[in-house]
Simulated scan of single mutants.
Amino acid sequence: MGARTDMTMDIEHVSQAKVFNGWHKQYRHSSLVLGCEMRFAIFLPSCATQDTPVPVLYWLSGLTCTDENFMQKAGAFRMAEELGIAIVAPDTSPRGESVPDDPDGAYDFGLGAGFYLNATQAPWSEHYHMYDYVVNELPALIEATFPVSSLRSISGHSMGGHGALTIGIKNADRYQSISAFSPITNPMKCPWGQKAFTNYLGPDQDTWKAYDACSLLESNGCALPILVDQGDSDGFLEEQLKPEHLQSAAGAAQAQLELRMQPGYDHSYFFIQSFIEDHLKFHAKYLTQGEG
């Protein structure tokens, strides 16, 4: 089973399973932007047809994840079916024999850790263009192939929360709303971000600001509503995530941020399961407004 789009990209159907009357489907395709084969997953609610296309929530996952983590662990499908929202989950980095990885095999850089940016430094610049992939190439493919509309929202977890915030803030005309779980809010000021940015973007920290949510709020503001959930028992909270930095930047920019500190929750998908329905309802409110 395959399809062809006007972008001359073949997609190959990998698997499917019926769930809550909708369908979870997995595909692979050749990415022109990343220069490698990529895989993504999509949940299509039962109401999605060519005559009634549905809006889409793009989910960006965190370090070490693939398209499978959210789809298998988040427990999002019942509510997505009820609300009539499709969910698309891409992989977290380019992959393949020609794609470079962290030379030490570390989990926080290279494969599985694309940080949703466009790398400018060799050897990463040949393949690591996850920003362009998520913002442009993947939505064009999705909208040309499936019964979905051009109404989009974006969400993510940890590194993917960083991606959702930065992509949403920079592309307010392309999305209706933004949310995140446990996001890396200020990567310029934390070890994960500093390592990734130094390697992908080089030592000039002025170039890092284009991929830092706090810096982007300072320079761009944000017209979109933002919902962030953060567990107060998250082991990465103080060193890596720094939600107080995001709250301060959003306050200065008068952005519509709701930051909810959730007592007792950690960084895991148990946390995401607990509040994913809130996030889906949050996005549905704005995606429905967009249809009007």
Rank of each mutant, 00 (worst) to 15 (best):
I42H: 01
H13A: 12
S233R: 11
L141T: 07
L227A: 05
H13F: 12
K18P: 00
Q256F: 01
S233Q: 11
L287M: 15
R4W: 06
C222S: 14
T198M: 14
S158D: 07
Q194C: 06
V88C: 13
P183E: 15
S149N: 07
G110I: 10
P191N: 13
A140M: 14
N171Q: 09
V19Y: 02
G231F: 02
G156K: 08
D206R: 13
G161N: 09
Q240W: 01
S153H: 03
R260Q: 11
S98Y: 00
P147F: 10
Q194W: 00
M159D: 06
A252M: 11
E81I: 10
G264R: 08
K73N: 14
L44K: 04
A249H: 02
R152K: 14
Y211C: 08
A41M: 14
T8A: 14
A223M: 06
I169N: 07
M130R: 07
L141K: 03
G105C: 07
S125C: 12
Y133L: 11
L237D: 06
V148I: 12
R4Y: 04
H129W: 02
S268Q: 11
T207F: 01
Y286D: 10
G156T: 09
S31P: 00
N136F: 04
C65L: 03
Q240A: 11
W59C: 04
L34A: 11
K281C: 09
M79R: 13
A80H: 04
A180P: 00
S125K: 12
S46Q: 12
H129G: 05
I154R: 03
A106M: 08
S125R: 09
H129C: 08
L216R: 07
D91K: 04
I276H: 01
A180G: 10
A74S: 13
L117C: 09
G75P: 02
Q176L: 10
S150Y: 02
L287W: 06
Q247M: 06
C47T: 15
K209A: 15
G231K: 05
T120R: 11
Q289R: 13
Q176N: 05
S179F: 04
V88T: 10
P45I: 15
Q50L: 14
K281T: 12
D6L: 14
D234E: 09
M79Y: 00
S46W: 00
P100G: 05
Q254D: 14
E12Y: 04
G2Q: 13
Y200V: 07
C47W: 01
Y133A: 10
N171V: 07
W59L: 10
L237Y: 03
Q240H: 06
